[in-house]
Simulated scan of single mutants.
Amino acid sequence: MWSWLIPILTLIVGLIVGFVVGVFYLRSQMTKMQNNPEMLQKMAKQMGYNMNSQQLKQAQQMMKNQGAGGNQKPAPPSNNKNHPKFRR
């Protein structure tokens, strides 16, 4: 019985610890990207996007707003005729 129970428990504990470590690592990398536009641009290029300086600033601002706990007011909808809210 113990020959089955110990590997299963070890697997479960390993998955939980791996997930927690991964979350903290990802959060630290996202924080570094907020302060380093070169790192953000490198990640965008790896994903197949070329970002100019205005897009980089906008992405950094968006990441900072999300990191602030989401207590920022959302932007009002634009008067774009292609926006689903304004279509008829």
Rank of each mutant, 00 (worst) to 15 (best):
S3D: 13
N82F: 06
Q60L: 08
M63L: 15
Q66R: 04
M33V: 08
A68Y: 00
M33Y: 09
K42L: 06
N71W: 02
L40M: 08
Q34K: 13
G69V: 04
S3T: 08
Y25R: 13
M30E: 13
K32P: 11
Q34F: 04
V17A: 14
E38Q: 12
P74H: 01
Q34P: 06
V13F: 11
Q61H: 13
S28M: 09
Q41W: 03
L5Y: 04
Q54H: 15
Q41G: 07
Q60T: 13
K57H: 09
N79D: 14
G48E: 05
P74E: 04
N52L: 05
V20Q: 10
V17Y: 01
K81I: 13
G69Y: 01
Q29M: 10
P84K: 00
Y49R: 09
G69H: 02
N36T: 11
K57P: 04
I12C: 04
Q58I: 07
G70E: 02
A59C: 10
T31W: 04
N36P: 05
P74L: 03
M51K: 00
G69M: 03
L26Y: 06
P74C: 01
L26V: 10
Q55T: 06
G14I: 02
K85T: 09
K73A: 09
M30H: 11
K73N: 06
W2M: 05
N65I: 06
N50Q: 11
L56Q: 09
N36S: 12
H83N: 14
P77R: 01
V23Y: 03
L11H: 01
S53E: 15
A68N: 07
V17C: 07
Q41L: 07
Q60S: 12
Q34N: 13
L9G: 14
K45V: 10
P37F: 00
I16E: 14
P37R: 02
G67I: 02
G69W: 00
V20D: 07
Y49N: 09
V20F: 03
R87G: 02
M47G: 10
M47D: 11
K73H: 03
A44R: 05
Q46E: 08
P37G: 02
Y25C: 07
E38D: 14
N79I: 03
L5N: 10
Q66T: 03
G70N: 01
M30S: 12
Q54R: 15
L9W: 03
G67S: 14
V13C: 15
M30C: 10
V13K: 13
L26R: 12
Q58T: 14
R27W: 07
N35D: 13
Q61S: 15
G18R: 02
P84Q: 00
V13P: 02
K57D: 15
I12T: 01
I12F: 00
F24D: 08
K85E: 11
Y49C: 06
Q54A: 15
P7D: 14
P84G: 01
G18I: 01
F24T: 10
F19S: 14
I16L: 14
W2G: 11
Q55S: 08
I16K: 06
G48I: 03
Q54D: 15
L15A: 15
L26P: 01
P74A: 04
